[in-house]
Write a protein that binds this DNA or RNA. Structure first.
Lengths: 188, 188
DNA sequence: TAATATACATGATGTTGATCATGTTTATGA
DNA sequence: TCATAAACATGATCAACATCATGTATATTA
């Protein structure tokens, strides 16, 4: 039951997409290789034709997830306002990989960590881009602090079993970042 | 081979401490009941005399970890400066439970989430305490935003396989928070 | 001190899940 | 068109683990 070249590429895409969603939803350990394959419309047997191990699947999935670049150049505040929403909070499977899996990354393979580190670098650069040429340093600091706040806020909000508290965290962190970004220039 | 009443209490303490360290170090799923018991100086068999299940151990451990209150009243900046350090970054097993396990909490039992939510509430209150009576709202916002930034920064730093980048994240987030806190009064 | 119940060690059990082995079908290249 | 090898389905294997069952020694208490 061989399959066409394009079908293979498509299958690989499906596997990685399914893995991306399942891992973000339920975590690396809780998701089964067989489950991923089923979600991709295949059976477990074929898996090792695509990846050497579950670890390799994890690393490849993370690389894929972190690669997707937002091409549009947005301001920090605009980005934060899209990030810190109820929709994003509800959509763990389709949302930010760091907010979904962050605390597990340190326990994964070197390849997985490398993918995330690369993504972190890119994200800091991107978020710092909007700034004037003369305060690059402040812009980078804003990018880092704001990105940390976004990630932390989403994790805290998702942790909470009280929706009101979760909303408060998102909203106040939004305001925190916005205020902060306005006063970028000239700080010690 | 019965054991004295105090020994039982001591054993329970040891189990919870071992669990707290192991979970933070390696995550909930990767840690084995037998491992926890061994680290507590016992064998796996006795476990179910203390807890009904691994899930119950997780919930109880988190409750315990989140209960520990810093009695000292510190400023936000002081707290952040203790939190965002290389030492804390290296000491995952003994450090902040949110930074170690945050993204896994949403996948745990209701009891576990409740414990974390309670801890989050307490933490926000504590960090907001230092403020003057007249800008409670701003103080609370600062507490939330800063706490989110701390948690996020620690997670990002631990994620990175590049020590320099990790240090930068810690340092810049420290500065980001400090800046913010200095100019609290009179905001929209 | 004797009787009892308890805490724990040792040793199952049953399931789950990663990974491998094999056979069948069919795209591909000659 | 044919031979070949790739993809994948089905069906092992093998180990890890949560949880349970049982026996034993000893703290407790009457």
């Amino acid at each position: 039951m061989r399959v066409s070249r394009e079908q293979v590429a498509e299958n690989r895409r499906q596997i990685l997409e399914a893995a991306g969603r399942l891992f973000r939803q339920r975590g690396f350990e809780a998701v089964t290789v067989a489950e991923v394959m089923k979600a991709a419309g295949l059976t477990h047997g074929g898996f090792y034709g695509y990846f050497a191990s579950k670890d390799e699947l994890i690393a490849t999935t993370l690389t894929e997830l972190m690669a997707a670049p937002d091409p549009e150049r947005v301001t920090l505040e605009a980005y934060a306002n899209r990030y810190l929403t109820s929709e994003h909070m509800a959509d763990c499977a389709g949302g930010c990989p760091v907010a979904a899996l962050g605390t597990d990354i340190g326990r994964q393979s070197p390849a997985a960590r490398a993918a995330m580190t690369e993504g972190l670098r890119r994200q800091i650069d991107r978020l710092g881009e909007g700034a004037a040429r003369d305060d690059r340093r402040a812009a980078r600091q804003n990018a880092i602090g704001s990105w940390a706040a976004m990630v932390g806020a989403m994790i805290l909000a998702r942790m909470s079993d009280d929706p009101a508290l979760a909303q408060e965290v998102l909203k106040e962190t939004r305001a925190f970042i916005e205020k902060r970004a306005k006063r970028t220039p000239g700080e010690s």
